Deep mutational scan, measured.
Amino acid sequence: KKYKIKVYVKDKKTKKWKKIKEIEVDTKEEALEAIKKLPPNYEVKIVP
């Protein structure tokens, strides 16, 4: 079972969220580790 991490950042001009990358991992633990490495201003969604 794979997890997709969708990473969004808020556009300063439009104030809208835009997706900047998608990370695919195998476990939820890996997903949480990957999220920890991202800057705090990123919004993250984990999709099972």
Rank of each mutant, 00 (worst) to 15 (best):
K2T: 12
K6P: 01
V47K: 04
P48Y: 15
K28L: 14
E30L: 08
L32E: 09
K16Y: 05
L38D: 00
K36Q: 12
V9K: 15
I35F: 04
K2R: 12
L32I: 15
N41G: 15
E29M: 13
K1H: 14
K36L: 11
K18D: 02
K10W: 06
A31M: 11
V9D: 04
E30T: 03
K15D: 11
L38W: 12
K13N: 11
T14S: 07
K12V: 13
K16P: 00
K45Q: 08
E33D: 12
E33C: 04
T14D: 06
K36T: 13
P48N: 10
D11C: 05
Y3I: 08
K19T: 05
E24C: 13
V25T: 08
I5W: 05
K19G: 02
N41V: 10
I23V: 05
K1L: 14
W17C: 03
K37W: 05
L38Q: 03
K2M: 09
W17P: 02
K21G: 06
K15Y: 03
Y42P: 01
K12H: 14
E22A: 02
I35Y: 03
A31E: 02
I35H: 02
K28T: 10
P40G: 09
K10A: 05
I20S: 02
V47A: 05
V9R: 15
K15N: 13
V7T: 01
V47H: 10
A31H: 01
D26V: 10
P40I: 08
D26Y: 08
E24S: 10
K28Y: 14
Y42I: 05
V7H: 00
N41K: 11
K18S: 05
I23Q: 04
D11W: 02
I23A: 02
Y8I: 01
Y3S: 01
W17L: 04
D26P: 04
K2D: 04
T14I: 03
V44W: 12
K1S: 15
V44S: 06
Y3E: 00
K45M: 10
K13S: 11
V9H: 07
E30R: 03
V25Q: 01
V9P: 00
V7Y: 04
P48M: 15
I35K: 04
Y3D: 01
V25Y: 14
